[in-house]
Design a protein around this nucleic acid. Structure first.
Lengths: 237, 237
DNA sequence: GTTCTATACGAACATCGTTCTATCAGACGA
DNA sequence: TCGTCTGATAGAACGATGTTCGTATAGAAC
């Protein structure tokens, strides 16, 4: 499969490498290394120096290949997006296909630590992002969704998934403790229950709902709402 | 109106101020100054030193009042959330009320530069955030939405609004140029149109839809989808 | 073998968040 | 009124960060 032309703002070095004692530094090697560090230690621990260290070199050596840290994050994002897969269009089942794409996107985000934080402030325009958009549009248009609604729908789908996973991946940092999942829910519930009931009658009344938050169920509800509504409007006009 | 108890992780200095030649430094003064700088110069330009400079002092002086930069951002976020307003419950029109809340939230986010970037990685638990949640839950429950669905619905509403405004506030930074609005849409369309049509038939076909993106219309569609779906499920049980 | 160009890297710069320590202003007990 | 204590303000410095500058190298081209 041939590559789409690289967007003009991304420098594209020729691939033939020079070498010293060690294996040559390539853009791909840098991105792969940085992604490994990101998955392991998180975004806050990802610095040019750390990546360079991992490659047994200095930070200056990276700049010829990735331009800037921002450029590196762009590349990481597109690299991760490249793991996405959208099925070939099946006009009879486009709604379920759309839901599958949403589920896969969520799973992908949850698989790569802090990737959603990287994606904000960035409009993915790398080759992988374009391929993904293309294939998603194919599913929608094959399903009979009008062009304008298809473009908007695809846009909204990722806005929704991003928004949902955004606070799903946010840890409720209370002081030093960093609880997870169930424990965090309990903590939130306890705090809410401790509030004065005369000022916060509704919050206190539903506090128990905060304890057990089934993220999967909430996500299913969200994409149900979304896809059903979209299909309804697609049929209407 | 009495204050709810401050969450344990937020230091709460006693309010009586000391003074030197200039007016005393208070937490509120710091937050207000930082918010002004944020609105004017954006998040990337917001540093402790800049805030301190604006107050004619050094960065160390801020730490007694706000604990850390992260603490300051928490306070800024809650300060901004405090601008929100949710109407008193009107059971007959809770759906339209919900949409109004969503619209107001979007307007608030667009009014304060980069505030959505601050809100990510942060679960708002300040006094203003709690009041907002309380009043929103009141609207939902008064409208007959079951408790579990109300909690989930309120959660999803803000996830959706955040997700939408997130890339709405993201500038398509192409190289050095930082186009806005219409110009950015045209630029995206031109780039998409330049793609090879055999590899990206669908993208190229709908490229014109990228040029004129009516963000308002898209947002209306989104909250229509969401509120309609929620109401439907609320009636179902 | 000389020149050229793509790559690598050491050193340094400006900036950042934060901490340590000393100091100062006023409140309070004597 | 004096001394003491506490809330509050800073100066200086530390370590870490993203990035640039200048220079050194290695292979390709002539």
């Amino acid at each position: 499969m041939a590559e789409p032309p690289p967007p003009p703002w991304q420098r594209h070095p020729s691939e033939r490498g020079r070498r010293r004692g060690r294996e040559p530094i390539t853009q791909e090697l840098i991105v792969e290394t940085a992604l490994r560090l990101l998955d392991r230690d998180g975004l806050d621990a990802l610095s040019m120096r750390r990546v360079a260290d991992e490659l047994d070199t200095g930070p200056a050596s990276l700049y010829w290949h990735v331009g800037s840290k921002d450029g590196l994050l762009d590349l990481i994002l597109d690299r991760v997006i490249g793991e996405s897969d959208v099925p070939d269009p099946d006009p009879e089942h486009w709604e379920e296909q759309l839901k599958d794409v949403a589920r896969a996107a969520r799973a992908l985000i949850l698989r790569h630590r802090d990737i959603v934080r990287i994606s904000i402030g960035r409009i993915p325009m790398g080759p992988n992002a374009l391929r993904l958009q293309e294939r998603l549009l194919a599913v929608l248009r094959a399903g009979g969704v009008p062009d304008e609604l298809a473009v908007t729908g695809q846009h909204l789908l990722y806005a929704i998934v991003n928004g949902f996973t955004l606070d799903e991946t946010t840890e409720l940092g209370v002081g030093d403790a960093t609880p997870v999942d169930q424990e965090a829910g309990d903590l939130a519930r306890d705090y809410i229950k401790s509030l004065p009931a005369d000022q916060f009658p509704n919050l206190v009344a539903v506090a128990d709902q905060f304890a057990f938050v089934d993220a999967d169920a909430r996500f299913e509800l969200l994409i149900d709402l979304y896809v059903d509504g979209l299909a309804q409007r697609a049929r209407a006009g």
